[in-house]
Design a protein around this nucleic acid. Sequence first.
DNA 1: CATATATACTCAGTATGCTGATTATCAGCA
DNA 2: TGCTGATAATCAGCATACTGAGTATATATG
Lengths: 160, 160
Amino acid sequence: MKSVEEMPGHLVRRFQQVAVAIFHAEVGQAGSDITPVQYAALVAISTNPGIDQVTLAGLIAYDRTTITGVVDRLVHKGLIVRNASTTDRRARALHITSEGHQTLDTIAPAVEEAQEIMLRGLSQDEQKAFMHLLQKAIGAVNDLSRAPMRAASKGTQRDL
Amino acid sequence: MKSVEEMPGHLVRRFQQVAVAIFHAEVGQAGSDITPVQYAALVAISTNPGIDQVTLAGLIAYDRTTITGVVDRLVHKGLIVRNASTTDRRARALHITSEGHQTLDTIAPAVEEAQEIMLRGLSQDEQKAFMHLLQKAIGAVNDLSRAPMRAASKGTQRDL
DNA sequence: CATATATACTCAGTATGCTGATTATCAGCA
DNA sequence: TGCTGATAATCAGCATACTGAGTATATATG
C-alpha cells in the first residue's frame, strides 16, 4: 500500500491545514478574526457590488449552502449588507460596507505576508512553478466538485 | 489587490475541495462511504497496531480533538476497535478489525484511481515536480499548525 | 512519598463543506 | 393566463478542523 505521504490528496489536505493556520496567525496579529473563506468572499463582494449569493459562490468556488453561513457571519460582523434584489425577489444583493473596506485595507499586508510564509520553503522559481502546476491541475478537474469555479457571466456583477 | 486566484492559499483550498469530491466519487463507486480522513486513519492504524490516538494524530497530522470523532466513526462502522491501553490507562490502543482490512482491500484501487484523477491535468513529469514541490513546501511550514506531522518516536507503534 | 507538571483523551463551541429537501420566485410555453 | 420546470436561498444533518477547558492518569522532583 502506498504511504499517504505520497498521495496528492493527503499532501494537499496537509498544506491547506497549514495555510489556514498561517492565515489566522497573520491576520489575527493584524487585529482581525476574519477567516480565509470570509476574506475571499469579502474581496469578491468588494469587486462585484450587488452580486447575488449564487454568483458569488461560483466566483470563489464555494458550495451554495456554505455561502449562506459565510454571508451571515460577514453581515453579523458589519462588513457587508444583504438586501433583497430589486430585479429578482429570490436573490439577495450583497454590498460591502465602509467597515468592510476598512477591514480589507487593514489586513491586506497580513494576507500578503501569509501567502509568502506558506511558500517560504520554495525558491522564487519554485514558487512560480508550483503556482503554475496548481492552477493547471485545478483547471483539469474544476468540474468534478459540486462547487466549480465560474465566471460571473450575467449582468449580475455590476447591478448597483 | 491581488486576485484570490493568484494566492496559494485559495488555490490549495480549491484543489483540496476537488480532491475530496473525487475521493468520495471513486470510493463511493467501490461501495464504501469512508472519507479521506477516515481512510488515512485506517491505513495508519493498520500499519501501526495498538497505536494510541495522539501518536496516530501525529502520523497523519490531525488535530488531537479531531481524532476523537474520526475514531468514533471508524469504531461505529466496525472497522477498528478502541481498547484501554494496558501500559497507560490514559491512552486507548487502536486495532484494525478484519472488516477494516477487508474495506482497505476493497477500496485500494479506487483510492489509487482517485489520486490519478486529481492530477490528470499534469503530465508524468509535471506530476513528479508537483509532488516534490508540495512536499518541500509543507516541510518548511510543518510546525506552523496545531497539528504538525510527527513520526511515531516512542515504542507506541508496535505495542500489541 | 507527596506534589507539581505533563500527557491522553474528551467535550463544548464555532466555522467550513457537503448531501438532500423545502420554499419562494422566475421564465418559458401551451 | 396558467402550468411546468428552473433557479435563489435556506435548512437539517453529518464530517472535518480548530480553540479552549476539564478529567484522569503518568512522570518527575523535592
